[in-house]
Design a binder for these strands. Sequence first.
DNA 1: AAAGAACCGTTGTACTATACAACTGAAAGG
DNA 2: CCTTTCAGTTGTATAGTACAACGGTTCTTT
Lengths: 155, 155
Amino acid sequence: MTGGAQPPRETSLDVIQRELTAFARRARAAAARVHPELPLVSYTLLAHIEERHGCRATDLAAHYLLDKSTVSRQLAGLEKLGFVERRPAPDDHRVQVLHATEAGTKVLATARTNRQAAYQERLKDWSAEDLAHFAAYLLRYNDAGTNDLPDRPSP
Amino acid sequence: MTGGAQPPRETSLDVIQRELTAFARRARAAAARVHPELPLVSYTLLAHIEERHGCRATDLAAHYLLDKSTVSRQLAGLEKLGFVERRPAPDDHRVQVLHATEAGTKVLATARTNRQAAYQERLKDWSAEDLAHFAAYLLRYNDAGTNDLPDRPSP
DNA sequence: AAAGAACCGTTGTACTATACAACTGAAAGG
DNA sequence: CCTTTCAGTTGTATAGTACAACGGTTCTTT
């Protein structure tokens, strides 16, 4: 590849903008279709908690650019469903260490499988090469936007 | 490029899944930051209306996979803001033909500019070639999910 | 050590986006 | 005609989110 005449940057930017917007609009509904038992955000948070083997609510908020109240409520929901546990941290009584329960791990595995199946199906006609490139582009795109994470200009 | 050993499909699918989810989670907030005057969905609908030089609410619902009630309320908002007009269709009294007003066109132009600037900035380090490829992948990805809705202008 | 600042999480309130169902009004087809 | 179908609105409910105010905790500074 390479070498050929590319469309101008403008055009590509326009397409990227439009298509990402279109995707964002559909994402929630699509996620709900794939795993109705576990809402999109809960899924993400739960996955993060499980991956880290215990983390704090504040970490989640920082990582996902969510307000702590949002996280708090999401966690309340997850706890109500019995998917996470809050353990008081022995060294700091302000924090709660979050852990995925057995049930949480299980439902997460199911959701993950369903999601993977959905993506598998949707992208079944793609070559491994195209998948790799697409994945790389997405990574690159997202990384560009999270650079501003560490510093929250607080007035 | 090409030629090299690709990561297995599984891995790429996983990355795509994770990154698209991450993107979706941030999209709304990001859009609000870029053009706070015009909510994300309203922006999209207004852009569509303007582009088509008049379309029906039902078309919007079909195209964006939204419930007609959702579209109805979005349009109510846009009308209240003076950005769209509803004109009764002479041939069919059930339908309203939607048009962007002068103000709508103007605010849309501003929002579009802001968005483009944001994308421009975010993707400034990308080569034209990479942009073109990324755009193509996004198109391909989105098309796979929207096969079931060809755009039908009114008969 | 006491006072104050910084931090963690919850709760009250409000708003956007969304769906589904019930409804009104208008066309279209027997 | 009368029924069915279509276009759009409205009532109700839910998820996700933010911001602001608050109650405890811990850290810092005097």
